[in-house]
């Protein structure tokens, strides 16, 4: 029973990280309609900004975390303005945008590697991240509690923005049809810019949280993005709430799946699940 509780806790923690990635990815995909690989590099931007500010400059951790999150958001917004806006104006295909995003991913990853090396780093600070709590026979560290709590807060905040604000309605409208949104007077390019800022800030936050839990590397974002995308497909691509459900489902299945086998099988289970969904329910748990 204890192992079941532990796997459930691990699944929820992994799922909440995937949920944040899926949220950010779905925000970007839902408005721009292409697979933004550059998003994964912003995860590392958040982690390394906090590493630089807190460990190398010596800024207080809360300020470093705040700046790290905003920095990832600004990076995402600048990429949008400098790369995606001109390409979209030229009616670039989704394939061209994908290749451009691959270029962005490579550049950001390389720049981080140049400044900080490709070595594994850890984030730490006054937060007693390793303090362990016992829940129904399972164990969870303080940073993992913070990950769960942060995910829940971000999810609720986005749900409120989506459901109740005019901004949220505009995002949903653009997700349906950018052209009609323009015709009814929605400033689509600015809204998409803000959406990318929010999505990128979430990516940065993911990088920071994961950095405190397991550490940071320049390539850390790619595997997280893949899991976020798998979660999105399982939940229903473009469906923000579906992505969250898909992420929790993925996190739990991944962890229950390794009950009697090596943890190395985690990725195989995740992508096996993806193939099953693509084959039997390509629209995901929830339709868009």
């Amino acid at each position: 029973m204890d192992i079941f509780i532990q796997l459930t806790l691990n699944g929820l923690i992994a799922g909440s990280i995937y949920a944040l990635v899926a949220l950010g990815f779905n925000l970007s995909y839902g408005t721009m309609r292409f697979f933004d690989l550059g998003y994964s590099a912003l995860i590392a931007v958040g982690g390394y900004t906090v590493f630089f500010l807190s460990r190398q400059i010596g800024l207080p951790l809360p300020i470093s975390i705040l700046i790290g999150t905003i920095m990832a958001g600004i990076a995402g917004y600048i990429i949008y303005l400098l790369v995606y806006v001109p390409l979209r104006k030229r009616k670039a295909s989704n394939m061209a945008l994908l290749v451009a995003s691959l270029g962005i991913f490579t550049v950001i990853q390389a720049v981080i590697g140049i400044f900080f090396s490709s070595q594994f780093r850890t984030l730490s600070g006054p937060v007693d991240a390793e303090r362990i709590f016992h829940v129904f026979g399972g164990s969870i560290t303080r940073i993992q509690v913070i990950i769960l709590g942060t995910s829940i807060v971000v999810m609720f905040a986005l749900a409120i923005i989506f459901r109740f604000t005019t901004f949220g309605k505009s995002i949903r409208a653009i997700g349906d049809s950018e052209e009609v949104s323009k015709i009814v007077g929605i400033n689509t390019s600015r809204i998409i810019g803000y959406v990318l800022f929010i999505g990128s800030a979430i990516a940065g936050l993911v990088g920071i949280l994961v950095g405190f839990d397991t550490g940071i590397t320049p390539t850390m974002g790619f595997s997280l993005l893949l899991k976020g995308v798998v979660a999105s497909i399982i939940g229903g691509v473009g469906n923000v709430y579906g992505g969250v459900v898909g992420a929790l489902f993925l996190g739990l299945i991944e962890n229950y799946g390794i009950w009697h086998i090596s943890t190395e099988w985690k990725d195989a289970i995740a992508f096996g699940l993806l193939i099953l969904f693509l084959y039997f329910r390509p629209q995901g748990i929830f339709r868009k």
Binding site: I161, F167, S170, Y194
Partner: peptide
Amino acid sequence: VFSALFER
């Protein structure tokens, strides 16, 4: 857009 972020 910015005020729309908070406007209900």
